[in-house]
Amino acid sequence: MADHVATGMAELVVVTPGALTLVQDRGRPGYAAIGVSASGAFDVRAYETGGRLLGNPEGAAALEVLLGGLVVRARASTRAVLTGGLVQARVAGRPVGYGEPFPLLAGEELRVGQCSRGIRTYLSLAGGVLVRPVLGSRATDTLSTLGPPPLAAGDVLPLGRPADATTVVVAPLTPPPDGLVTLDVLPGPRSDWLADPQLPGDWTVAPDSNRVGVRLLGDAWSRAHAGELASEGVVRGAIQLPPDGRPVIFGPDHPTTGGYPVVGVLTDQACDLLAQLRPGQRVRFRTSGK
């Protein structure tokens, strides 16, 4: 800590973490064969946009704030931006925009309000969050408990060196959708296990959804045939069909292998929408060809 002060490196003090705030980056792909999922930011586009708005290097770590409520204080002046889940926020009492980089001066507090659209807001900071990487990534994997633990009050996060100049000032950000969300789905390896491969029905996001998987409630799908499947590798966005017929869609911290049939896989764009679904929100699938 003394080193950071001596070199003028910025640090961020966590005053209140909110419901759950995690450090996330692009994750650690390449280790799934030894049971380690890629993890990383759930809403990839929102996370990447935040980094770009600050001119951060690719893969710089940001904070993924669940449902808002985060309060942080800067120990040295820096710049920051909020993307993803729509929030109102204030720095030292004055409102700051969504998707617009803003200065956070030494000693000032940033208070992130409740999330009104979506559920995951990304707080990107100039230079990125510099906690110790594990297997090449600073992401917190909630299933494997790799990477830093969730933020707690009093944590001090060192920040990297900011970019000398950035060119983008405001990004045309669309907040996550309210109401019924349609998720685009590509065929899965076991789509033929479903009686109706069109993935029919209206579904409701279950409250026990998280970064491992998003559970859906609704009229169960029926299987085309019974039988068992040997464990096989699964991807983020995979729609898994457990015996009860209600789909579970894998998030970034999913198990690396699974024994239930995967009957569809979300597009990367749909995965970003998945990240922002609120419990109780309605969901429908739209299948497309190969």
């Binding site: 590509l186 995967v262 896989v265 597009t267």
Partner: peptide, 8 residues
């Protein structure tokens, strides 16, 4: 098939 970026 297994989505945009994978094959089983």
């Amino acid at each position: 098939p297994s989505g945009e970026r994978a094959v089983l």
